[in-house]
């Protein structure tokens, strides 16, 4: 009975849709974190499929670090508008001004500063669930993440107190003030995401594709040069054909040299890659536990 078979992508899709509907059914005020990055583009398509022909039953939320790639923000706004979805943007800049977030001297990346900004947004809108596009294959502290990841009143993740998840049953109960981070793409790999983007012909921000950009070599990476990040003395600015593999803070997201201008090129490149996707992100390299530490504090 070969017609009753699902491919691995269809299985992952069906699982993700189940999780999204569970969120819509069990929570009062859910939101979907949408940055415009490739994982959140997949999330948005899955949400569309989970609820059509109705509109999305939750608003989109983005924490803008002020260090986002401009291409990314344009794309984010355009997609939200096309879907008729409500988009809420909260900025790190604003959080800094209000004193919710404080910069540590010497800190270049705003990755850490996203945490208090996000927590404040969750509090402001009283979100009890936030859907995110994180995947377990990204990083080993994520390998133990649940689909429904419970956060206490301080937004903290306690790895030893996670709720067991069995079959397709998720416990979404929270008390007021607590919330749940929900990760429908938990079981997807980077390759699955790319294959799905290809299959669904999803549009992506242009920076995922090869383009010419001014970069400097720093810390073993090609970093983009721009107003926020001028070249340091002695650094040689080069104009290279590059693309990004993952999108984080513009200050710390390394570009890779690439000629990949189509989705097929990218898939070929990803299959041949010998470095993990987050390998280009300096924020993960601080210590072996840096992701775990950020997650404990409330990172998504």
């Amino acid at each position: 009975m070969s017609q009753y078979k699902l491919s691995h992508l269809q299985l992952l899709e069906t699982e993700a849709i189940h999780v999204m509907r569970e969120v819509a059914a069990e929570f009062e005020r859910p939101t979907l974190m949408f940055s415009g990055g490739k994982d959140s583009v997949v999330m948005l398509r899955l949400a569309e499929k989970a609820f059509r022909p109705a509109r999305l039953p939750f608003p989109l939320l983005n924490v803008d670090t002020g260090h986002n790639f401009p291409e990314l923000n344009d794309f984010r706004d355009r997609r939200a508008e096309a879907l008729g979805a409500k988009l809420i943007v909260r900025t790190v800049e604003d959080a800094l001004e209000k004193g919710i977030a404080t910069q540590v001297p010497g800190e270049i990346s705003r990755n850490r500063l996203q945490i208090p900004t996000l927590l404040a947004a969750i509090e402001e809108f009283e979100f009890d669930a936030a859907l995110g596009g994180a995947r377990r294959d990204e990083e080993k502290a994520r390998a133990k993440e649940r689909f429904f990841s419970f956060r206490d009143e301080f937004g903290q993740w306690e790895p030893k107190r996670q709720r067991p998840e069995l079959w397709n049953i998720y416990n979404g109960r929270v008390h007021p003030g607590q919330n749940m981070r929900v990760f429908p793409l938990s079981n997807w790999t980077e390759m699955d995401v790319w294959e799905y983007i290809k299959l669904e012909e999803l549009e992506l921000p242009s920076i995922y594709y090869a383009h010419d950009r001014d970069v400097v070599r720093r810390g073993g990476q090609w970093l983009p040069v721009n107003d926020l990040q001028p070249p340091k003395e002695g650094e040689e600015v080069q104009n290279l054909r590059v693309r990004v593999r993952t999108i984080g803070d513009i200050m710390t997201t390394g570009c890779i040299e690439s000629e990949a201008t189509t989705i097929d090129d990218i898939i070929a490149e990803v299959s041949a890659a010998r470095v993990t996707e987050r390998g280009g992100r300096a924020d993960d390299k601080v210590s072996e536990s840096s992701m775990e530490d950020r997650k404990r504090e409330g990172y998504f």
Binding site: R136, K140, R142, K144, K160, S186, S289
Partner: peptide
């Protein structure tokens, strides 16, 4: 590779279900 949490590395044991792909 699989024992990602700090206390696991410290104790040399696996505490929780880890998913690998």
């Amino acid at each position: 590779l699989t024992d990602g949490l700090r206390s696991e590395r410290e104790q040399g044991i696996t505490i929780d279900v880890a998913y690998r792909y």
